[in-house]
């Protein structure tokens, strides 16, 4: 019974968090981006992580999570920020990757989290599916994205950086 109750509480919190969108890429939730690292019941807390050290969305994300928890009568749940181990784009869930692609952002290849972009494989164009693509700018509109272009359909697109 206790175990069942604990699972239910954790699932409830995770459900609340799964409805908190990333402020910059609202098509994915903070859970799908791998920002939520853990949910612990005793003491009640949500452990989150930052993606990039200087990401301006970090404070907004914390405030959004706080509000979502408060609105769900989970005010006793604290938010903790953990740095270690550092966030990697490998933590973006499969659902999150599909949503990024549908939104027009090429998801990062998996397993290259710690590697440099130099050796990363070509991105798949989120418009036409071509792999004939090239990097235009390694740094893009937000810290987590690079700017690419498709050589087939000529559309420029964002690519979530391997990190």
């Amino acid at each position: 019974m206790m175990r069942q109750a604990a699972l239910n509480w954790r699932d409830r919190v995770l459900d609340v968090l799964s409805h908190v969108p990333d402020p910059e890429i609202p098509v994915v939730s903070v859970v799908e981006l791998g920002i939520v690292r853990d949910v612990q019941e005793n003491p009640p807390r949500v452990v989150i992580t930052t993606t990039y050290s200087g990401c301006p969305a970090t404070q907004v994300i914390q405030a959004d999570i706080r509000k979502a928890l408060d609105d769900a009568a989970l005010s006793e749940v604290k938010i903790e920020v953990a740095l270690s181990p550092p966030w990697t784009s490998d933590w973006i869930t499969e659902d999150g990757r599909k949503k990024l692609l549908a939104y027009g952002i090429a998801p990062p290849p998996k397993g290259t989290g710690a590697a440099s972009l130099k050796n990363a494989q070509a991105a798949t164009c989120p418009r036409c599916g071509s792999i004939k693509t090239r990097e235009i700018s390694r740094f893009g509109s937000t810290p987590c994205k690079a700017l690419w272009q498709c050589e087939t359909c000529r559309e420029p697109f964002d690519r979530f950086k391997c990190h």
């Binding site: 990039y52 050290s53 200087g54 740094f139 509109s141 810290p143 700017l147």
Partner: peptide, 13 residues
């Protein structure tokens, strides 16, 4: 973009 992004990372650090 590159220089501003590097600056942002450094501010975070």
């Amino acid at each position: 973009l590159s220089l501003a992004n590097i600056a942002l990372d450094l501010i975070g650090q």
